[in-house]
């Protein structure tokens, strides 16, 4: 397996240093767009919307292929083995960077070419409607009054949501003994647990809880963002509530490719992403889904990924997850 990968990588490298003339008119054939998720989820829907918009811009089909399994392992293995010619790209989220530091240590940020960032999504904290907690202050007081009485539901330990909570917790002098992190199979499952009041508090995204908040089943306690989000204009930001957490930590989505894609091709792909994000269809979708447009080109995106990776590493160590 490893031998096979190495050989493919060697072939790929050989192709990458071929004269640029051979690929002057990129793209002239369909582009494969590999996803790490099963069809139907938010990441999948966004990717398919983006593919449609990019098709019109690039003039070739973008074939979305779902490669779920192994928390990104299946997708990344295929992506890493593909030729770095721009005809195979993949979706990336903050979860991938978490995985590089936890379950998929054979990959690093450097193992891939970071082509473009698409959107950011702020984390927020919700509570069941029957909870006495109405603000971040209440949450902190409840946790301090009786350590362990409040549990926070979210995705696995070491996921973006987990760090988001730890960053917030740090700003409020809470630790994992006072508020235990309960890992669910997905953020959606965590929200369901909060709906059923099995967990009083959960970490979530705007889009996941929007209708439940409108229907009065859940209440938003805090949003991890500098500005109030338009969907919940009445919820004060963390800073307004007096907690100085680093709000730059948000769930990111972007596009990566195998290492070694020539610069002009990366630039062309990034430009297509940028234009696609400005089409009315995607603008409407992002607004509807409470996604914050956050385009970045290859250079910025790579730097950003490195920064996110450093934060992840630090938190992994702090929380003792680097075993």
């Amino acid at each position: 397996m490893l031998k096979f990968l190495l050989r493919t990588a060697a072939i790929a490298a050989a192709i990458a240093i071929m004269p640029a003339g051979a690929r002057a008119d990129f793209p002239d054939k369909p582009i494969r767009y590999l996803l790490h998720v099963s069809p139907g989820g938010a990441t999948d829907v966004m990717a398919r919307k983006l593919a449609i918009a990019m098709e019109k811009i690039l003039g070739v089909p973008l074939v979305v292929e779902n490669k779920p399994g192994g928390r990104g392992a299946t997708q990344l293995a295929e992506l890493a083995a593909a030729k770095p010619d721009g005809y195979t790209i993949g979706a990336v989220t903050s979860t991938h960077i978490g995985a590089f530091n936890q379950t998929l240590k054979q990959y690093k940020v450097d193992s891939f070419d970071w082509i473009a960032r698409l959107v950011n999504e702020p984390y927020l904290i919700v509570v069941n409607k029957d909870s006495k907690i109405t603000s971040m202050k209440d949450l902190v007081e409840a946790a301090n009054a009786k350590p362990g009485s409040v549990v926070m539901a979210g995705f696995v330990r070491g996921s973006g949501g987990h760090f988001a909570w730890e960053i917030m917790a740090k700003s409020a002098d809470l630790d994992s003994k006072k508020v235990r992190w309960v890992p669910f199979d997905s953020v959606g499952d965590a929200v369901t647990a909060a709906l059923g009041n099995h967990a009083e508090v959960a970490i979530a995204y705007v889009d996941l809880v929007k209708t439940h908040v409108q229907a009065g089943n859940l209440r938003v306690v805090a949003v991890m963002s500098d500005k109030r989000v338009p969907q919940f204009p009445d919820v004060p930001t963390l800073k307004e509530q007096g907690y100085a957490a680093d709000t730059s930590w948000q769930q990111m989505r972007g596009i990566i490719g195998p290492k070694g894609i020539p610069e002009p091709i990366k630039a062309k792909l990034a430009e297509a992403v940028k234009q696609a994000l400005e089409t009315p269809e995607l603008k409407a979708y992002m607004e509807e889904s409470a996604l914050i447009p956050a385009f970045q080109g290859p250079a910025d995106f790579t730097a950003n990924a490195q920064r996110e990776n450093a934060v992840t590493k630090e938190w992994m160590t702090t929380l003792g997850l680097t075993r």
Binding site: M1, G69, G70, R71, T74, Q102, T103, L104, R157
Partner: peptide, 20 residues
């Protein structure tokens, strides 16, 4: 077999394909 559901540690993962 696979990444453990709570702590995320590997269990009997002989190849990455078995992570899930």
């Amino acid at each position: 077999v696979g990444a453990d559901p709570v702590d995320g540690v590997m269990r009997y993962v002989f190849t990455d394909n078995l992570l899930g």
